[in-house]
Write a protein that binds this DNA or RNA. Structure first.
Lengths: 197, 197
DNA sequence: GCTGGTTCTTGACCAAGGTCAAGTTGCAGG
DNA sequence: CCTGCAACTTGACCTTGGTCAAGAACCAGC
């Protein structure tokens, strides 16, 4: 029997941090808006306000920005069971500079800023939940800063592969190159030179 | 008349996010442990568990790591009214790899993990407060990732100077160089070449 | 007013990674 | 089965920033 409850994954995600009664769970899920995105479809574009905190049910998304020269820099990937947003825009309510785009056909659950506020007011435990989620994301982001400063491109690639093995089959070389911060041509040379194919 | 209440700054910091009764304020401040550090003194060393979330009352601190080649990479500076910690170690309870060191003589207020737990249990509003603080720190960290990927060294320096003008008189060139991710010798050349002195 | 340690500067050389353009390969749609 | 586009590769050359070592400048303490 397959998984017929679209909320099973997100409730398990939340349940790792707080315990909800069935009523609370159902209150929560009613605040979520299901969405689906075809491969390459955008959830958010540069200049738009990021109104939602989005949970990935299946598929995969990426957030990236275009620099002054129009080059794409990938900030994060989001696989199932992860959240994605342009945090800066989400917390400030101002237009952001990130794109969020589906890498694959993707099914999502969106929690809008407004509904998040309602949720936090009605079930204050969620403050705790979001604090913990944010702490972890923050720690991961700091680690990425450290890696960018102290590791070579090859080391960053190795680390990426070990850390996110399940992402590898979903991503093009270009996307991995962008995430670790090198150009596609250097990435290609790097694979060859170090026999990393 | 000078500021005689050592808790004034931290209460204002908290008060930007939540409203406390006088009783709550006093409950909170009793959970804080005052500390002072002489210039160059360590609050935390590599391999130790970071047990405290530390608020800077006056002075200035930095967190950094040493890479495999023994080079120092500064992750964050903390001026008065800021918090500093090795978040990774703090949330996991495991030994971390950061040093936290006073740049100047510094006065601090430390909230231990244990006391934070008590605080969160007794005054759940603090969940909200720490969620917001963490969100902001996370957003800043993401922005730093973006800058590292998409800006040149000179651009990163300019941005740093604009963003933290009050830090400049406290820091040596080496420290700024380390923060923006270049060597001291390249930093020196960079200043000369672009007349940035 | 020395003396010693930092910090900063500079020169000569080096290496990691970028750029641009021209192929190749691969594969999806018709 | 062909066409067309996107992804990947490769060559020639360039730029940014690193390394190492030596000297200059700047204190702080005595």
């Amino acid at each position: 029997m397959r998984n017929h409850d679209p909320f099973e994954l997100i409730l398990a995600n939340i349940g790792r941090h707080i315990s909800l009664t069935p009523e609370e769970s159902s209150y929560f899920t009613r605040l979520l808006k299901p969405g689906q995105y075809a491969r390459k479809e955008f959830l958010l574009r540069e200049g738009a306000v990021c109104a939602d905190f989005t949970f990935i049910v299946s598929g995969c998304m990426k957030s990236y920005l275009l620099d002054q020269q129009g080059k794409e820099h990938i900030l994060t990937f989001a696989a199932p069971d992860w959240w994605i947003a342009d945090i800066n825009s989400f917390i400030s309510g101002k237009p952001g500079n990130l794109f969020i785009q589906a890498i694959n056909d993707t099914i999502t659950l969106a929690l809008s800023r407004r509904n998040q506020e309602i949720l936090l007011r009605e079930i204050p435990q969620f403050e705790r939940c979001f604090r913990i989620l944010t702490e972890r994301a923050f720690a991961a982001s700091l680690q990425r800063n450290i890696d960018a400063m102290s590791l070579s491109a090859v080391e960053r690639l190795e680390k990426f592969r070990q850390q996110y093995p399940y992402l590898l089959p979903l991503l093009s070389d270009q996307e991995i190159a962008s995430y670790i911060g090198v150009t596609p041509s250097f990435f290609s040379r790097m694979l060859k030179k170090h026999d990393l194919k």
